[in-house]
Lab assay of single mutants.
Amino acid sequence: MLDDRARMEAAKKEKVEQILAEFQLQEEDLKKVMRRMQKEMDRGLRLETHEEASVKMLPTYVRSTPEGSEVGDFLSLDLGGTNFRVMLVKVGEGEEGQWSVKTKHQMYSIPEDAMTGTAEMLFDYISECISDFLDKHQMKHKKLPLGFTFSFPVRHEDIDKGILLNWTKGFKASGAEGNNVVGLLRDAIKRRGDFEMDVVAMVNDTVATMISCYYEDHQCEVGMIVGTGCNACYMEEMQNVELVEGDEGRMCVNTEWGAFGDSGELDEFLLEYDRLVDESSANPGQQLYEKLIGGKYMGELVRLVLLRLVDENLLFHGEASEQLRTRGAFETRFVSQVESDTGDRKQIYNILSTLGLRPSTTDCDIVRRACESVSTRAAHMCSAGLAGVINRMRESRSEDVMRITVGVDGSVYKLHPSFKERFHASVRRLTPSCEITFIESEEGSGRGAALVSAVACKKACMLGQ
């Protein structure tokens, strides 16, 4: 009897593995994704193909990295998701002549009506938060230079001027797309009239992360975010950046690689679950690469896999709870928690219980395998993109072996128990001629924006502006 049951459990697990095998990517698959990513990057950089390229390769006008001589107080704003952060950054000489960066910050959550109302409502709310922060720190009387981390696709015309191309991540505030974001912020500050600010720089969160990590390690020339969304930036040779005049030196390019796949480059790798996630998203047909990796989508992918296993009578005796059938019910943090389970399955059992399920031991094991399959594919897909960037940098610099540091931020990278190990191992397999160091950014977005502002202020002083 026991043997029969054991055989049935083994057969069930084997069927589960057959279904989950769809998520496995072979090294040849990853090399294919990497080569296609490089081709799209090239198209994004070139003037004649930029418009139709899915990977936009947006110039950021960040050319210099901090040298350690900029000092002063800077205000930093960070808008990239449902939370908005205001930070005071003091850049100065530390002990023994070292450079020191001290920060104080406060988080504000953005109400739904500000995210989806008008641009005026959104930026009025942001300036209200700045006003509140300055009151708390008794700094209303000071006109501070301000660095703005704005983590949406922007076409820069200068370091302090950028046109919002399109909202992502659930934002829909009308009247912002096609307009200068810094102008919208300046107008809102003017409307309030109770404080003055000098907006000197606007950067993407990947750029802010790279600059913040450069402060720790001067070989950091790539910034990457794996959180709600997924994106990367890197220092490109100016001669390859056709959208900006000049051939000397390097400029940081914001790849906006989340949109890779929007022209069909990933079609052969998309599964039924991916198509369902895409169809029910706020932007169907867009940001397809990001939807395979980002935390906004990972939990939902797992939920759809679990429903398939229920329908195949391989999980929960073929019956799903009402909660499990509800879109968004299986949160991405559950994926991390399930994979963090120590082996007694308590954590998995508790999560499934909150979803109205009474799982068996085998159910718990199957749910864990589903989570591992989805998150491992995410790590491997992400590795193909980064390997594409790094191999490109090595080739354009004609280096036999390139040493490089990548600064990384984002909740999936930082909080998932195995993502970074799987990701690092896969990147290294795909970049055999590179020695890569990964560092995690601390308060990256805010500190990085302030350091970019410090560079901009120093330049302005040198130019006598």
Rank of each mutant, 00 (worst) to 15 (best):
R186H: 11
I189T: 06
D311E: 13
L79F: 04
N83R: 07
E40A: 08
D187A: 10
V310G: 03
R397S: 14
L185R: 01
Q98D: 12
L451P: 06
R392L: 05
E331F: 10
A176G: 09
T255L: 12
R192L: 08
Y215C: 11
L352I: 11
E290A: 10
E52C: 14
L386H: 02
N313H: 12
L304G: 11
K161Q: 06
D400H: 04
Y297L: 07
R7D: 13
Y289A: 02
P417K: 13
H141Y: 12
I366N: 14
H380R: 11
Q138W: 04
F171V: 15
E128T: 15
A384Q: 00
P66L: 09
K90G: 10
G356R: 06
I348F: 01
G385P: 02
P432F: 05
N166M: 07
D262K: 09
L77P: 03
G294C: 06
I19M: 10
R155T: 08
D278M: 01
E95C: 15
S76V: 12
N350D: 04
D4W: 03
R191H: 04
D42N: 14
L415P: 03
F171D: 14
L58A: 04
E237Q: 06
G295H: 14
C230E: 01
G92M: 08
R422G: 06
T362H: 03
A282G: 11
D267W: 10
G446L: 15
G162T: 05
N254E: 05
T354I: 08
R35T: 11
H416P: 03
E372I: 10
E9C: 14
D278S: 04
S174D: 12
L58W: 13
K172E: 13
Y108E: 02
M57S: 01
M41S: 01
G68W: 07
L45N: 02
V305P: 01
V305K: 01
M402C: 11
T431M: 08
K39H: 12
E40T: 05
L20Q: 00
V16Q: 03
K172I: 09
R392F: 05
V452I: 15
A387T: 02
Q323A: 09
K32D: 13
L306Q: 00
V305H: 00
G178A: 15
S100C: 14
V338A: 06
R63G: 10
K102C: 07
V181M: 06
E236G: 00
Y234H: 10
F171T: 08
E14N: 14
N391E: 09
L288Q: 09
G464Y: 07
P153A: 04
L144M: 12
F150P: 07
M139E: 07
P153N: 12
G162L: 08
H105E: 12
Q337N: 07
K296C: 14
S383T: 03
Y61W: 11
G162F: 12
A232F: 07
K172N: 14
H141W: 10
Q38G: 07
V408R: 00
T376V: 09
T49M: 01
C461A: 15
F148P: 01
E93D: 13
P432G: 10
L355T: 02
S280N: 15
L307T: 12
C457D: 15
A425E: 07
T431P: 00
H141M: 08
K90Y: 04
V71R: 10
N283T: 13
R358M: 08
L20E: 02
F123R: 01
V89K: 02
T326N: 02
K15N: 11
G249H: 01
D198C: 03
R250F: 09
L25T: 04
V222M: 07
M41G: 01
T149V: 15
I436S: 02
C461M: 13
E245Q: 10
L165F: 11
K172P: 09
A456F: 09
S281G: 08
L430C: 01
F316G: 08
G223K: 00
M251P: 02
D267T: 11
Q24S: 10
A320E: 07
V244C: 05
F74G: 05
S131M: 02
D160E: 12
V302Q: 00
I436N: 00
I163F: 14
H424W: 11
D135N: 13
N231T: 12
R36T: 03
V408I: 14
T49R: 02
H380F: 12
K291W: 01
S375F: 07
A460P: 04
T49V: 04
R250C: 01
L314D: 05
D160P: 03
Q24A: 11
H137W: 07
G72I: 02
I366L: 12
A259Q: 04
S373C: 12
V244Y: 07
L30K: 03
Q106W: 04
K143C: 13
S321K: 12
Y214E: 04
A449R: 06
S127K: 15
C129R: 03
P111Q: 03
V253F: 00
A173P: 07
H218Q: 11
G97A: 08
M197L: 10
M238I: 15
G81A: 15
I351D: 00
I351K: 03
L122Y: 15
G261S: 01
D124V: 04
D400V: 09
L2R: 04
L77C: 15
V182A: 15
S281M: 06
G299W: 01
S383A: 13
R192T: 05
L184K: 03
G295C: 12
Q26N: 15
K458D: 01
E28P: 03
E96V: 12
S263R: 15
Y297C: 09
K140F: 09
R36V: 08
G299R: 00
Q24P: 02
V412R: 07
L88T: 04
Q24W: 15
R392H: 13
A11F: 06
R303S: 01
R46L: 08
S174G: 13
D267S: 05
G97L: 11
H137L: 09
C220T: 06
E300V: 00
C220P: 13
R394H: 10
T209G: 01
D73L: 06
D205P: 13
W257D: 03
L324D: 01
M37L: 09
V199M: 12
V406Y: 01
L122P: 03
T437S: 14
R192F: 03
D135W: 03
T103W: 05
L266W: 03
G446T: 15
S64G: 14
E93M: 11
M462L: 12
A450I: 05
C230L: 09
K12G: 15
K291L: 02
E237C: 10
R85V: 14
A10H: 09
R394F: 07
V200N: 05
G318M: 03
R428P: 02
D113R: 15
N240W: 02
F269N: 05
M107R: 13
S398Q: 03
E52A: 06
L79T: 04
N204I: 03
E372Q: 04
L463F: 08
K459V: 10
E399F: 08
D132K: 12
T116H: 06
I351G: 05
E28H: 15
E157P: 15
Y273H: 05
C252T: 02
E40D: 14
V452G: 09
R43D: 05
A320R: 10
D274S: 00
M37S: 00
